[in-house]
Amino acid sequence: MKTLIAVLLSLLVAGPATADAPTKIRLTNGEWAPYQSKDLPNYGAASELVTAAFNAAGIEVEYGFFPWNRAMMLVERGAWDGSFMWVLTPERDRLYLASDPLFTLREVVFYSRDNPISAQKPEDLKGKVMGALDSSAFGRQFAPFVDDNSIIVSRVPNNQQLFQMLVMGRVDFVPELETSGYEAILEHLSEQQRKRIGHLESMTYPWSYHLLISRQIDDGPYFIDAFNRGMAIIRDNGEFERIIGSYIRPREIN
């Protein structure tokens, strides 16, 4: 009888917490093929991965598509619950709760063969113009030289414009992921233009990607825990590799 009473009491205590647990999350999204796009199946490979992880933890995902600056601002204010795929910086770590890493990708330095560059370390590119995406942390290794204006930065909202600037000679180099960089080259440049783009093997930088959740919402810690649990589930059952495996390895450019 005491055991039965103890079980009933534990259910009464646990019941409301379970019943009150959120079953839906609202995430900001944006344009970054092949990982994220409102025009791709399942909104891109990373979106599909995030959906699968949350679904495995019993949470439905709603996406809203915005320019990247606005996507982050909406989460910072708590108007939306979270956003992805983002690398961690000290500022982002202060403003958001971060999940375990989704995966790690390699940043490389792209250049045009019409304007070849040679570099072994960031300071070798002083005096050059760097192309970068709005709100992107790519090129972190060049930050000291950007701060003292020995490297000038030209920012644009998407990879299409970024690589068109590079092939037109408006910027000297572009630090971007090897995967999404070559995806943009394949999608947005002509065959002749593609042949003019290369990357430096001498300068690479690893990035781990995360889901970020607003610190302004009460359910933030719950969402992080649920997502991490869901990711563990889909890694174990093979869904992770099915969804994202081919997208975290660079495509060949012929």
Rank of each mutant, 00 (worst) to 15 (best):
K2M: 10
A6V: 10
V7L: 11
L11R: 09
L11T: 11
G15Y: 06
G15A: 13
P16F: 15
P16T: 13
P16H: 14
A21T: 13
I25L: 05
T28L: 02
N29P: 06
E31W: 15
W32K: 00
P34A: 05
Y35F: 09
Y35E: 08
Q36G: 03
S37D: 05
Y43M: 00
A46S: 10
S47T: 09
S47D: 13
E48W: 04
L49G: 00
L49P: 05
T51C: 05
N55K: 15
G58F: 10
G58D: 07
G58N: 08
G58H: 07
E62I: 01
G64L: 13
F65W: 07
F65I: 02
F66Q: 11
F66Y: 10
F66S: 08
M73C: 02
V75N: 04
E76Y: 14
G78R: 07
W80H: 15
D81Y: 12
L88N: 08
E91Y: 03
R92G: 00
R92H: 01
R92W: 00
D93Q: 07
L95Y: 08
L95I: 14
Y96L: 08
Y96P: 04
L97E: 13
S99R: 03
D100G: 03
P101S: 09
F103K: 05
F103N: 07
L105E: 13
F110P: 00
S112N: 06
R113A: 02
D114Q: 05
D114L: 03
D114Y: 00
A119G: 10
A119T: 13
Q120M: 14
K121N: 13
P122C: 09
L125S: 10
K128N: 11
V129W: 12
V129A: 11
V129Y: 12
M130R: 13
L133R: 02
D134C: 00
D134Q: 03
G139M: 03
Q141M: 15
F142E: 13
A143Y: 10
A143V: 07
